[in-house]
Each structure stands twice: as C-alpha cells, then as structure tokens.
Nucleic acid binder design. Sequence first.
DNA 1: ATGTAC
Length: 485
Amino acid sequence: MPVPPQLRQISETIWELPRSFRDGMLVPARFITSEKLLAGLESGVFEQTANVACLPGILKYSFCMPDGHWGYGFPIGGVAAMDSDSGVISPGGIGFDINCGMRLLLTNLTEEEVRPVIKELVDSLFSRIPTGVGCSGFIHCSRSEFRKLLTEGSRWCLKNGFAWPEDLELTEEGGCFEGADPGACSDKAVERGYDQVGTLGSGNHYCEIQVVRPENVFDNKTAAAFGLTIPNQVVISFHSGSRGFGHQVATDYLATFLRVMTGTYGIRTNDRELACAPFRSPDGQAYFAAMKCAVNMGFANRQMILHRIREVFSRVFNRSPQDLGMGMVYDVAHNTAKLETHEIDGEKREVLVHRKGATRCYGPAMAGIPARYQETGQPVIIGGSMETGSFLLAGESSAASTFFTTAHGSGRTMSRHQAKKMVKGQKLLGEMEQRGIHVRTSTYGGLAEEAGFAYKDMDEVASATEMAGLSRRVAKLLPMGNIKG
DNA sequence: ATGTAC
C-alpha cells in the first residue's frame, strides 16, 4: 500500500504526518509501527488518523498503534488524549463495543495433563459459555438488577458469589469505572443487555486454552511475577465486551451527537463518523456516564465468563478452581475513554484518553496498578488470531510518550468478507484440528472470518511495541483449544 | 463489534 508522500520517518518506530498534511490538523499524526507493518497500512488509516488530529482539544499527537487498521471514524488502534476542559469526547474514538477487552487466567496444569482432555474441555466450555450473535446469558437478572450491575461492574459479581476478591484487584480500575449512571442509558440499551451478562458474543470474540512453552518466555523474571512458573504451563485467555448493551449506548449517542454537534456546539468534523460533543457539555457528560455503564457491563460480563471457565475445569479435573491455581493474571480493556493524569510538556494535567483498539500499559511504580505488579509494570494481554496465539507483555515507563498506551491485537489485514471468500470454515476447522488445535464455533462462516491469514503477523506487532518502548514481551501463548462465536 | 437492514 503506498504511504502518503508527506509521511516522514522520525525514528526506527515512529512515522509522522505533519499538520500541513490536512487543513485543520491541530497536532501531527503519529504511526507507531515497524517498517514491515507500515507497508501494510491501508491508506484509509492515514486519513482517519489525520482526521482525528483535527478534533477540538487534542493534545500532542493523534496516534495509531502497530496493529492499526481502518475503523469507524477513528482507526482501530487509535489513541487521542483530549484536554479535559476544552476537548471533546467522541464515541468513534472508543468503539461500538465499549470495553471490549482481554482477560488472562492461570492454571497450575501442564500441556501434558491437559492434552488428553482438550476435547472434553473445549466441548464443555462451548456448552457452558453462551456464544454467537444474540445469545442470552445464564444469570437471569431483572432490568432493575441489571441497572445495579451497570453501576457496580465486577463488584456486583463479587456480591453475588461469582468472583474471588483478588479478581477485582486484578482487573483494570478494580472492575468498575466510578460515576456510571444507568439513567443516561436508554431503555432499549437495557432491554438488549440485561439478558446478556456472561456471554462471549461473535466476530473475533473467543475463549482459548493456551500453552506457554519455555522457548516462548522472553522475560523469565516478569513471567514468574505474572504467575508463569511451570514449563509448558496451561493458561486460558478470552476476549469479549459489553455485547448489545454497549453497542446500543454507542448507537444512541452517535445519533444524539450528530444532531447537536454543529447546531448546539458549533463543531465541524471531516467525517460524520467522528461525531463528538464537548466533554464538559451536558451531552458529553451524559455519554461519558452511559459509556461507564457499558464499561462496567464489560467487566461484569468477563467476570461471569471467568466463573464458568473455573466451573468447567473444576468438573473435568475433579478439583477445586483454587486447587487448580485458576487465579487471574489481569483484565485489560481496549475500547474506552478515561480521565487520567499525564505529563504534557513538563506539566501534569488531567486529560481524557480515548483508546480504541488500544491497551492501557502503566509502567512500574505507577498508581492504579496492583501492588504485586509495582516492580514489573502492569500485564498487557494482546490477543492474536486463533491460529497464531497471543502475547503477554508488561507496561514500561517509556510508554509515557503514548499516554501509556500500546497495541491490543494483531489487527486485521483483510475484510471479513474477503477472508470468507478465501477459506471455508469447515476446511479451516479440519486443518486446525490436524495441527492440534481443537475448535468449536457457533458458525463456520464466522470461523473463516477469523483465519490466521486475515490478521497481521502477531510476532511483528509484539516486537514493534517492544522496539517502540511501549511494552516489553513477557511470553507468547500458543493455542491448544478455542471456542468462538 | 452488532437482535450483521430500528
């Protein structure tokens, strides 16, 4: 893909479009990537990252992470910090699936112990965790109970016996964004969401049983601090979000913002998909309070899925989850906007950081990460494709340059439609089976969309984040079994 | 991502 002629290389891992690239750019656009990944960037990503640079109140740079690809308004992999007084909030900078995120769970089992029962485990996970479009959850709470869950996030799960206390410590923000207001969410959003807690969803949402081979551990000391202490240790990671609820919140407020943006607030954007409102305006604050509800739904959703995973392993091995060492490593959100304090030109300021397909990666000794990770930096979980595995990384102090943000996945290289044309899901399933990856899926078409070839090179993305100083590689997690929607 | 066209 040809890059814009105005793009100039700043360092080994930074390319920049200057403000002169487009009228109205308030800051330059920066692409944090590698030479190889840069060559694969779609031209739309340059346009989108430059359009974001025009949004009122944006500070320093409009960023695109190494896994960046074309998205709604912002690129997926887009990062923008706004001045919390004069800046805007934009749903397109957060994503439709608010608090889509990754959670990583340990076991004290080895590959040798798990391999003989992998089919039973995967089949059992598939039958116990609802997957696919429109699926319902296994807890049936009322609409009013769901509104409580929206304000409490993972705390609701703890109160109801679906969490260990340490699960909350090991979730970003303790599994709850404070200030969530269910009153800011439409009845329609509640209607779509109240029955979906504890469901995986579809698309690229999955739950995977993985093995950490000794040759795939890059930082032994940090791996041990993250609980990886056994050769060929088995872990489980999964990817899910706030389902139909978050989608409806995003849809509702995009419509509102489009209605009021120009008339009420006098804001014009290059792309209607960048609809936004001043953060301090009533509309901006209402969306922020509703978005927090969706964030909390996402945390609670992943907590309920975790509960079911523990049940499944416990039943198959006839041992308690505690005895199986099924504690969490961490839970990271990658579709949010959050008020954080960052140093901007030598001055500490409160800014609204939009992360859309981008992971927070606080470094060592920072407030806001668990005590046990103070020396290592927070765990960062980057989900790859179901064929190539995932990465566990650690936050670094040098990530201050991107408001402590790193990549979130491997990033698509082709559309879902294109991927489906290239391989039949049933054939792919057979091939993966032969390579020792047991897969269950709710639709064969959906499986084909997630084929490994439809994604960027996972190793290249992880290496690029490390070279750029955003996060350091700790271990690569290889798939043994996968369930997907 | 998504009751994949409220």
